[in-house]
Design a protein around this nucleic acid. Structure first.
Lengths: 122, 122
DNA sequence: TCTATATTTTGATAGAAATGGAATAATGGA
DNA sequence: TCCATTATTCCATTTCTATCAAAATATAGA
């Protein structure tokens, strides 16, 4: 993935800056690559389907979620590479080169970023 | 710092999810612990003083900026520990709060609660 | 004190975002 | 085909957010 710009980071941050959406994203992260059908997410998040749909669209549009159809179900998954890109941006641009190294890292993505300042397993 | 909750992360994300504010925060990060007077920030960000004041208040309220008075000037500084806490939260939640030191743990079968007996696609 | 400078607050306005019920679409099975 | 299930879109409503001129506040120096 190309290095993230401020203009790219803002919509991703905005997508996460909402309690329901941040919660939904965490649920998707926990579900892993298998993902979850929309109805199950609505259940877990405790929001009516129309609201959930609205928030899933926001997450998708920000690149934080993907979806695939499976029968009558639409399965949503977390897009880890977008989150990794955001973390790289924040680490590179908002920590002034200070020791801001996170305590742990998630690199589910097979695609490896070339960002130097975030440590990643080889 | 105590571990950040989702309810703590949302207002911090919201503070950063705005072009002017993210830009201002980056400027403060670059300025380092010395900080910058409000007027200079307004200049650098290209926003009128009243707007800048609004955004600085948002950042301060989120814990991302601190301020001290110096004569007629109010010097703003970035609060790195808040950003560190946010990065830690996002990094931890990128893997569902599981210890993801082994990268493979994210690739393994995720822990998905199967409460319902309803049949769902795998 | 008076005056210039620095910043914040006020207040009005415009626009965006969130909510959820109802209607619509799409799919699979009988 | 018809029906039940799943999900999205439409819609009205409400609530937040951002903007910035103008007024207010605060400080330093003359």
């Amino acid at each position: 993935m190309r290095n993230m710009e401020t203009s790219d980071a803002v919509p991703i941050l905005a997508a996460l800056a909402q309690p329901t959406r941040l919660n939904v994203f965490r649920v998707l992260v926990q579900a892993g690559p298998v993902g979850l059908p929309a109805g199950r997410i609505a259940e877990l998040a405790g929001v009516p389907p129309s609201s959930l749909s609205f928030h899933l669209k926001e997450l998708s549009h920000a690149g934080l979620a993907g979806s695939r159809q499976n029968g009558r179900f639409v399965i949503y998954t977390a897009r880890f590479e977008t989150m990794n890109g955001l973390l790289a941006y924040l680490t590179d641009n908002c920590c002034g080169g200070n020791p801001c190294t996170p305590v742990s890292s998630c690199d589910l993505q097979p695609v490896v970023k070339k960002t130097a300042s975030r440590k990643e397993p080889a």
